[in-house]
């Protein structure tokens, strides 16, 4: 089995895995980083989103062979102590219901907000609508993103 090198949340790992194993399962089943969620396995829902070399990536369809040597950030590494402005805003607005999709939602927002730090509500709709939430927390996700932007995410 080939070995791949990944830097995940600042820590370097040598991972033995089949080339086609998606990054999602490398993170969850091999590295034990379960904050990144399995929702659909086909890039439809966004629950598995992480940052690969700074870009938002759906980890459920990213074969490990294609991300070897990359720098990966997961929800566990977004901030040291849960104080990223988006995490704080999420708490302030009481966004989560079941919470399952929220790590993907937050990682997505943290990604696109690098280029759009002062979004309008329409920007949020345009950039965040690819991420599904069955509990229906969309209104609060939007509110939290706008709040975080206001406070300088």
């Amino acid at each position: 089995m080939p070995t791949y090198t990944l830097t995940v949340n600042g820590q370097e790992h040598a991972v033995e895995a089949e080339p086609d194993m998606p990054l999602l399962w490398v993170l969850r089943d091999i590295l034990g980083l379960t904050g990144t969620k399995f929702g659909c396995g086909s890039a439809f829902c966004g629950a598995c989103e992480v940052h690969v070399d700074g870009a938002v990536q759906r980890s459920c369809v990213a074969p490990v062979s294609g991300v070897s040597g990359s720098v990966v950030t997961t929800i566990e590494g977004l901030s040291e102590d849960g104080t990223h402005p988006l995490q704080l805003a999420w708490n302030e607005v009481n966004v989560p219901q079941c919470g399952y999709c929220q790590s993907g939602q937050i990682m997505r927002a943290a990604g696109w907000m690098k280029d759009t730090p002062n979004p309008t509500a329409a920007d949020v709709d345009a950039n965040q609508s690819s991420n599904l939430c069955r509990c229906g927390t969309y209104q609060r996700i939007k509110e939290a993103i706008l709040l975080a932007a206001e406070k300088g995410a």
Partner: peptide, 16 residues
């Protein structure tokens, strides 16, 4: 929400 922090940091343990 009592568990907000666990949810937004990925530390809440779901069944999966």
């Amino acid at each position: 929400g009592r568990d907000n922090k666990a949810f937004v940091t990925g530390s809440a343990t779901y069944g999966v």
